[in-house]
Design a binder for these strands. Structure first.
Lengths: 225, 225
DNA sequence: CCAAAAGTGTTTGCGCTACACCCATGC
DNA sequence: GCATGGGTGTAGCGCAAACACTTTTGG
């Protein structure tokens, strides 16, 4: 059976990822510089067109790998962007994804991947003009990130070896832009049955070592804040 | 500029709506019976293919009108379904919408619209075999509905003239499948600054009239339960 | 022994829960 | 005046917020 109606043709899907890290008291995201048209030379979120034989998540993962060299990133679908003029090539529906990665890996990948310019930017210092509607996607993704960190274990991706409670508290404070009492924070996290002790500890320069924790696999339906 | 890569062609978008009502202690949804292939004769959610020159929400509204005669329905985008075999015609990405409507309107439309068979079904008594992945979409939509009723004013659509607090409580109890204490329910709702008195009241057969309330326009960031 | 950050308990107040009686209306 | 469902107040409990000192380590 052949599609006749022209109104049903020439639609495509963009899969676009916002990869967050938290570093030095700032939320940062990964951007790449586009090397072809449209928006040649503009900074943009990593992403591209979905193949007609691939799942959305697979497409997002593939595009992230092709554009940045990063693999083994856990992404989640979070938004849809459908403005008619998103792309001037043909009608493109944008489907956005969110991921979290530790800063060390982000730095490393930025250097080793030669094929395209890539860098990470503080959320408060993003280039003025981004490709497509990526500025809008970033704003939406940041809001979704704020939800995710309080009701999922997504922050495990920021701390591959586990986090100390002070580190975790700093992360919450940075992303949510809010301060917490240290004792209440510990009590809450330890009392919620959502993290576990890895029996390892971490030492910063010159003081008492702190225990390393990780989020449990299943913490759904629990809200940290 | 012409799209060359075949992998970028032959993708389409389905916009699909789940329209909920609550009636007689049951959650019900609107289904239509398909009158052409694929899935000819199957019950299905109202929906269809997006045009390449229309917004997703506009497409969902249009399809709902074309398939059921219903207009002036407020819909919200809530999910994405991307299985490769969703449709055998071509690759179709399903984008789902949710709406709430009062039972009287649903009954009326079902009768007046002659062009296609339509009916509403209790969520506990849905036809075994639905078209496409619509069973999956319904299950997802019901979960989203449970979220929406506790943190948005979506239930205004179920009560166009306002609701009495006992009516509202019944609705919550039906959808969430949970019981609440009447006094605590009233205290909570009245104390949250999310509903207002319409200065009208409603009388059921033979007893004290109850005040009619409506949700305020902006109740974001407040969770009823 | 000093600096720096980790770790720990108690008190207070507020919001949620549990619970029983009076009120307005139609018939 | 009675049946039906609407409307109201209070006491106890558990969770969250506020708050300051001790411990461990490296230098």
């Amino acid at each position: 059976m052949e599609i006749k109606n022209k109104l049903y043709k020439n639609i495509g899907i963009h899969v676009i990822s916002t990869l967050f890290t938290v570093d030095n008291g700032e939320v940062k995201i990964l951007l790449i510089r586009r090397s072809n048209n449209p928006y040649n030379g503009y900074w943009a979120l990593p992403g591209g067109a979905l193949y007609n034989n691939e799942l959305l998540l697979d497409g997002a993962v593939r595009e992230l790998r092709e554009k940045t060299g990063l693999s083994n990133i856990s992404l989640e679908q979070i938004g849809i962007f459908d403005r008619l003029d998103r792309s001037n090539l043909m009608r493109m529906i944008g489907i956005s994804f969110l991921g979290v990665i530790d800063i060390e890996r982000l730095k490393l990948e930025r250097i080793t991947n030669k094929t395209i310019d890539a860098d990470y930017f503080s959320i408060n210092n993003i280039p003025e003009e981004l490709a497509y509607d990526h500025r809008e996607i970033i704003d939406d993704s940041l809001n979704k990130l704020k939800d995710k960190i309080v009701n999922s274990n997504i922050l495990n991706n920021l701390f591959p070896d586990g986090f100390t409670l002070p580190e975790l508290q700093d992360t919450y404070e940075t992303v949510l832009n809010k301060k917490f009492d240290r004792r209440n924070f510990r009590k809450k996290l330890l009392g919620m049955d959502i993290i576990y002790d890895t029996n390892k500890s971490k030492r910063f320069k010159g003081n008492k070592p702190a225990k390393l924790y990780k989020f449990k696999d299943e913490i759904d339906n629990k809200n940290v804040f």
